[in-house]
Amino acid sequence: MHMADALISPTVGVAMWGATAGIASYSLKKLNIEADEKKLPLMGVLGAFVFAAQMINFAIPGTGSSGHLGGGLLLAALLGPYAAFLTLSVVLFIQALFFADGGLLAFGCNVLNLGFYTCFIAYPVYKRLIRRTNIWLASIIAAVVGLQLGAFSVVVQTLLSGKVELPFTTFTLFMQPIHLAIGIVEGIATAAIISFVMKTKPELSTTIETPINRLVGTLGLLALMIGGIFSSIASSKPDGLEWSVFHAIGTDELRATTAVHHALERLQQSLALLPDYNLKGGGTSIGWLDIGTSISGIIGTFIVAVAIMAPYIIIKKWRKEA
C-alpha cells in the first residue's frame, strides 16, 4: 500500500506531510519521552523488528500462497498508539529513503494511510473488542478496519492528485476487497504473535489508554455522513444569490473582464482541489449516490472541522502559555 511519488500531486503530498507533522508533534507531546527515556531504545529496536518480521513469510492455510506481517497493529498493541505512530513514521522514512519503498513526497500519505488509521482508529477498536471477545477476532476486525480505511485513503489521495486516470468506482472496488484479504491475514499474524507473547510475558502489553471523546466522535461521524451522503442528493437548483444574479443579468455566474481577473481565475482553477464540489476530472455515480460529490462533501467537512478547531486550539495554547 506504499504510495509512490509519481502517483500524487505536490499539493496533496505537501498537505499530507503537514498533517503527518501535526500528528507526530501531538504524539511526541503525549508520549512525553523525557519522562520515560527507556522507551527510546525499545521503539528503535521494535522498528527494526518490523523489518525483520516482514522477511519471515508464513503459509496461508488452504490457498498455497504466503503472507507476511505489516506490523502497525502489533506495534500499537505493544507500545501504545503514540509511540507506535512515531515508530512507524521512522520505519516508513527508512523504507522510502533506503529501500525505495514508497516515495519521499508521498511519505506523508504513507504515514497517514499505514500509521494513523492503524494507531488511532484500529487500535482503539482492538482495545475495546479485546475486553469482550478473544484476541484473534479483535485483531482481525481491528486490522481489517485499519487497512480498509488506509486503502480508501489511497484511492482518495490518488484521485485528488489527478496524476493517473483511474475511475473512482473501479479503483475502490479493486482496492477494498484486496485489502480485506490482507487485513484478515494481518489480523491473524498479529494475533499469533500477541497471544504467544501474552502467554510468555504478559507484562509486555501496553497500559496506555487511548482517550476517545465520545461526543466529538459521534458528532464527527454525523458530520461526515451528512457531508458524504446527503451532499450527493442536495439540491442542484441555484442558491439565493445565483437566482438573483440570474434574474438580474440573465446568467448565473458573473464573468471576469480584466486581465487580472483572468489570471486570478486561472490560478483558482489550478489550485482548487474540488472545483464545483466535485473531483478534478468529474466523479462517478452508483445509483443515486454521486461519488465525486460525496467525497467532496467528506473532504469539505474535514476542512471545515480543521478550520473551526484551529483557532480554538491556538487560542487555548496561547492562553495557557500566557
Binding site: 511526541l28 522498528g47 521512522v90 527508512i94
Partner: peptide, 16 residues
Amino acid sequence: FLVIQLLLTYRYIFLF
C-alpha cells in the same frame, strides 16, 4: 528524539 530513533532503528535493521 525522532532523529535519534531513526539512527537506532537503522542501526538494528541489518542485524535483525
